[in-house]
Nucleic acid binder design. Structure first.
Lengths: 233, 233
DNA sequence: AGCGATCTTGATGGGATCTTGATGCGCGAG
DNA sequence: CTCGCGCATCAAGATCCCATCAAGATCGCT
């Protein structure tokens, strides 16, 4: 239960309540960002990209509902509103402005945490970094989602190290990677001197992905420097 | 405000409240389905595919929280819980079981409508509420709604862990799942180190679903990484 | 309380993978 | 021409990872 979870931006001007919330979130493994004014919120979201925003409506320098509406112009980050106002119109206004939930003070911390979990699980698919799903080099295809490598029709079986190596090369296709960089990325910073590892495993990798391993077309050696994956384009 | 919106399944045993809700939803352009017992819910969702479920927790024939958890096995349709119980533990339990919102009776109809709008706009894609009722891999069929697994003609009996394992693999068919991911999903985040559990139970599962458990065709091991359910691409 | 089913945990052996050292080749510098 | 350096290849041993078995603990039901 000690793993680091997502970061949460707490926007609350009352210092006591802010401390209280921070303590509870800390205890539950969230990283906490704090803001006490509406004017700070945009900058903090863009710079830290929190997974969720807890927004007090009663801020001194601006209306929280307007802020919510403004945020919704450009971000889908979940917004859970905390408010002393419990009137139904206030709730409807905040929710329709784009808030994902609305809690009336005083609220129980367990309920807040549960509602935060709801808001967080709502968006795992929403805007995942959606990076590259697959790389293609000639008839070599690296499907990252499936962790699968194919050469033309047949599927290749790569060992963990070989796969890591290939992925590193693919992500930096065209660029030369030094032995140091490769060692650091695949084996970890402590192995920076074991140049030999790279050679042995690069040879294994070539045996599998090169048509003619003796005359590599894909993985080219840059003597004295490192290796490079040729991107044919 | 007269266009036909999505349909909403109202699960509520009190006739008066049901009529009241129906009237409000009608007036707001929703199509309304009604149920008064937990046992009808699964059939109505599968047959009518509503866009949202309003679920009263105090049903005569079954616990609404268990029902929520069961539904979450196979559908992501938004569930908004209505309950006379306002204790914090009740809310937390329902939300963690998979409900998307929780309103304590008596509630204002405008708030309910606003929270329904929130739940509806959360839906991943406007159309299908992502219902996957059964998975098929070769002659292995996993019927999620009935929680039943068949291999060709004969039904298999899977233990809870085996079933969870298989479902996890099926939902991620083709993708490699790391031991970590499996442990987190099946046993919970605290068990991330118990790699051995996965091996033992994966072996049991293979004994049951593989024609030749020694030469697995369906569940393939990715050494050093995890397991993968092969999907016939 | 008792029973059967299921889960946890340890032990073991085999196989895949990695590490490590030895060897040979090619190329450029001296 | 020869030496030295970096690279490729090979192979053996060490290590890691996986499958399997089995015993004890626990769970769930009657």
């Amino acid at each position: 239960m000690t793993d680091v979870k997502d970061s949460v931006l707490v926007v609350e001007d009352e210092p006591q309540l802010r401390r209280f919330i921070r303590a509870a979130l800390d205890a539950n493994g969230y990283r906490v960002l704090e803001a006490s004014r509406a004017s700070e919120v945009v900058a903090l979201i863009t710079s830290h990209n929190p997974a969720l925003v807890l927004l007090d409506l009663g801020l001194p320098d601006g209306d929280g509902i307007d802020l919510t509406r403004a945020l919704r112009e450009w971000t889908t980050v979940p917004i859970v509103v905390l408010s002393a106002r419990g009137r139904e119109e206030d709730k409807v206004a905040a929710l329709d402005a784009g808030a994902d939930d609305y809690l009336t003070k005083p609220f129980g911390m367990n309920e807040l945490l549960a509602r935060m979990r709801v808001a967080l699980r709502h968006r795992p698919s929403a805007d995942e970094p959606t990076v590259e799903r697959a790389y293609t080099f000639g008839d070599l295809v690296i499907d990252i989602v499936r962790r699968e490598v194919r050469l033309g029709e047949d599927e290749l079986h790569l060992t963990p190290i070989e796969y890591k190596l290939l992925l590193l090369l693919a992500r930096n296709a065209g660029r030369v990677l030094t032995h140091q960089q490769i060692l650091k990325d695949v084996w970890g910073p402590a192995y920076a001197t074991r140049t030999h590892y790279v050679r042995v495993h690069m040879a294994e990798l070539r045996k599998k992905i090169e048509r003619d391993p003796a005359r590599p077309k894909l993985i080219v050696t840059e003597p004295g420097v490192g290796y490079r994956l040729r991107d044919a384009r």
